[in-house]
Design a protein around this nucleic acid. Structure first.
Lengths: 189, 189
DNA sequence: ATTTATATACCGACCGGACGGTTTAGTTGC
DNA sequence: GCAACTAAACCGTCCGGTCGGTATATAAAT
């Protein structure tokens, strides 16, 4: 996916990958152009050729993450068994898959970097969140359960993206299962 | 509270207030010593007299916020009507009062600054969170409901601390009410 | 076929400003 | 006389961004 004609990853992709990894490794506040360039395997000049400013790079990180989430949601929507609160289940599952699967791969990184550098870069995220919530609110059979589950996943993923989660893998699994039960069986068991 | 002998706020307090306000105003990544000093009404030298390094300042911000939360929890624990899942209700209510009451006053600011600058500064927060969760798990009548409610509040407050919340005031009130109902009446209404 | 032109993608030296922290010399109030 | 500063200069480093140059490929002109 997203390779150029010769089947090799484009520089843009390599750069975005490198930036995401770096944020995860050394922290959003320490993200520098030189470090990104080095990890992506090109020079600072080459990096700035692809992204003329640091803001542009951060913006692209955010956009890519939004696109990936939306992709993942689309896939889940097709694949998931139908039932109540489908939209909420799709939203929560995609969030959990993306940001929490062992390493927070794509989600948190861009957001943390943007939040540290220039909060306005989070505007597109705001839109996505607003849209997601609206969709959950209008499409759910049990709006209360759906919102609650979504918020809980939001909390869990936020904890994990700051390495603040006190939960073991099996604790986490239990919690995820519990949220899924809430979403499929409603607020009354 | 926390004033010196003559009833005036100590410089330390003024500095910590200023830093918190600044983070809220201009973003965690743009927090500089000079700006903090200016807003606190003293010189950079005076600031560095009180906090010898920027790390020390951030550490103090975190510590103050932890102390305030623990204070607030203690107060709530005495004042709150007894009932099921008391500990979870205390934890969630203190979180909501602190960080979400109109302005995110104390909680988010220190955390965001620390996360941007030096994630290791969040270690004390990790401890508090782990302790809170353990307490909720051991003391709750309905552990599932308690954890779910706590996570949801965590999610809501995280959204709010990045100005990402799509909820209106009355939406928010409904959600908080819903979480409280979950905590007081259990997972089955 | 050879030259010339143009575009793409990149290198890397360098600049300038910001910022954390130091130092020094002086001031004010208890 | 000491604690708690002020004021201002200064240092060293880091870092975003600029800029001139380079290599390669493709196209156009002769």
């Amino acid at each position: 996916m997203l390779e150029n004609a010769r089947g090799r990853k484009s520089s843009r992709e390599k750069i975005l990958d490198a930036a995401a990894e770096l944020v995860a490794d050394i922290g959003a506040g320490r993200l520098t152009l030189e470090a990104v360039a080095e990890r992506a395997g090109l020079s600072k000049g080459g990096l700035l050729y692809n992204f003329p400013t640091k803001d542009a790079l951060l913006q692209a990180m955010i956009q890519r993450m939004i696109d990936q989430v939306s992709e993942s949601k689309e896939a889940l929507r097709a694949q998931m068994e139908p039932g109540p609160n489908l939209e909420a289940r799709v939203a929560t599952t995609s969030l959990l898959n993306m940001c929490c699967g062992g390493k927070m791969q794509e989600i948190a990184t861009g957001m943390m970097a943007a939040a540290a550098e220039n909060p306005r870069l989070l505007d597109p995220v705001r839109q996505v969140i607003a849209a997601t919530v609206k969709q959950i609110e209008t499409s759910s059979d049990d709006v209360e359960a759906a919102l609650l589950g979504w918020l809980a996943v939001e909390g869990l993923s936020n904890l994990e993206m700051h390495n603040l989660s006190p939960f073991s893998d099996q604790d986490r699994e239990r919690i995820v299962g519990m949220i899924n039960r809430l979403l499929t069986k409603g607020i009354a068991p």
